[in-house]
C-alpha cells in the first residue's frame, strides 16, 4: 500500500494490510507453482539422474555414482567445439557489430536513428529457423555452389563446414551484440569527444581513451548475451554443420533421443549449466568492476 499505512495503525488499516498480504500471496501463487513444477523440479530431476545409471532398455535406473561426470571427456569434441566456436563467434559478432553500433549512436542522423535501430532488432525476433535455413539455401548445393558451377568455377563445398556454422552464428546473433553497445554509446556525452579533440588527441587516441572505456558495459552485456546463447546452441550446428561441427546441444539431443542414455546426458547438461553459471558470475563481477548497468532489454 502507501507509506501512510505504516504511520497510523488504526484497526481498519491493520485489516487492510492483512488483506493486502493475502492478495500478494494470491497474485504470486500461480507463477510460484509454475516455477516449482516446470523449473525447479525438472532441474532437480536432471541433477538426480546425473548420478544414476542407464537402464538396460534406455532411460534411468536409480543409483549413486559419479561415473557420468568422470566420463564427460568421452564427449570432449562437443565441449571443445562449443568452447572454441562460442567465444570465437562472440568475438566476430563484437568486431562486426561495434562499428555499426558506433555509427548508429554517434554518426547517424537523428531522423533515421530509430528506424535504423529497429531494422537491426527486427531480424532477431523473426523466425530463427527460417533465417538459419536461408544459409542452407545460400551455401548449399543449389545456392552459391550452383551459381559458381554455372559460371564454370567447378565444385565448391561451403555447407557443413566450420565456416557455414560461423555464418549462421554471426547472422543470428549480431543484432543481440549491436543493441547493448548502441545503448551504452548513446549515453556517451558527445562533448567528451570534442574536448578530447580540442586537447589534441587524434581520432584513435580519443577512441581508445574515451569511447571504448565508456562503452565497456555495453560490450560486456552484448558479449555475455551472445556467449550464453551460443553455449546452448543446437539448431545452427545441426542445420549448417551437418554432423561434422557439433555443439554440446547436439550431443544432448543425441544422448537423450538417440542413445537414450539419460543419466550421462543429465551429467552433460549439468556440466553445461555449471559452465554457464561460472561465466555469468564472472560477468557480474566484471560489470561491477566497470560500474556499468545491465542493458539487456531488447525492446
Amino acid at each position: 500500500m502507501t507509506a501512510t499505512a505504516q504511520t497510523i495503525a488504526t484497526p481498519a488499516v491493520t485489516e487492510r494490510r492483512q488483506s493486502g498480504r493475502w492478495l500478494t500471496a494470491l497474485l504470486l501463487a500461480p507463477s510460484a507453482v509454475w516455477f516449482f513444477v516446470l523449473l525447479i523440479l525438472p532441474l532437480a530431476v536432471v541433477l538426480v539422474y546425473s548420478v544414476g545409471v542407464r537402464a538396460p532398455a534406455g532411460g534411468y535406473q536409480a543409483a549413486f555414482t559419479l561415473d557420468n561426470y568422470l566420463n564427460l571427456p568421452a564427449r570432449w569434441a562437443a565441449f571443445k567445439n562449443t568452447l572454441t566456436l562460442a567465444p570465437l563467434g562472440t568475438l566476430i559478432c563484437l568486431l562486426a557489430g561495434y562499428p555499426l553500433a558506433y555509427f548508429l549512436a554517434v554518426k547517424s542522423s537523428a531522423r533515421w536513428r530509430v528506424m535504423l535501430l529497429i531494422l537491426v532488432i527486427v531480424p532477431f525476433w523473426t523466425s530463427f529457423l527460417i533465417r538459419t535455413y536461408a544459409w542452407i539455401f545460400i551455401l548449399g548445393g543449389r545456392g552459391i555452389p550452383a551459381l559458381l558451377d554455372a559460371m564454370g568455377m567447378g565444385d565448391v563445398r561451403l555447407i557443413n563446414t566450420p565456416f557455414s556454422v560461423m555464418c549462421g552464428i554471426v547472422y543470428a546473433y549480431l543484432p543481440l551484440m549491436v543493441f547493448p553497445i548502441y545503448v551504452s554509446l548513446e549515453k556517451l556525452d558527445k562533448r567528451l569527444l570534442e574536448a578530447s579533440e580540442d586537447l589534441g588527441a587524434g581520432p584513435f587516441a580519443t577512441f581508445r581513451q574515451i569511447t571504448l572505456p565508456l562503452s565497456a558495459p555495453g560490450i560486456i552485456t552484448g558479449c555475455m548475451l551472445v556467449f550464453i546463447l551460443l553455449m546452448g546452441e543446437y539448431l545452427i550446428p545441426q542445420m549448417l554443420g551437418g554432423g561434422k561441427v557439433f555443439f554440446i546441444g547436439n550431443a544432448l539431443v543425441d544422448l537423450f533421443l538417440q542413445s537414450l542414455n539419460w543419466p550421462y546426458g543429465s551429467a552433460v547438461a549439468m556440466a553445461l549449466v555449471i559452465i554457464m553459471l561460472v561465466t555469468v558470475s564472472l560477468y557480474l563481477r566484471a560489470t561491477a568492476a566497470t560500474g556499468g548497468r545491465r542493458d539487456a532489454s531488447l525492446i
Binding site: 532441474l43 536432471v46 554457464m276
Partner: peptide
C-alpha cells in the same frame, strides 16, 4: 520472497532452451 522470485525469473531466462526442454521431458515422462 522478492530475491527468490528475481532469481527464478533470471534462471528461467538464462538456462538454455535445450536444457529446459530435456529437463521438462525427463521430469514429465517420469
Amino acid at each position: 520472497v522478492r530475491v527468490i522470485f528475481d532469481g527464478l525469473t533470471y534462471i528461467a531466462i538464462m538456462v538454455p532452451g535445450i536444457v529446459i526442454g530435456i529437463a521438462t521431458l525427463i521430469a514429465l515422462v517420469t
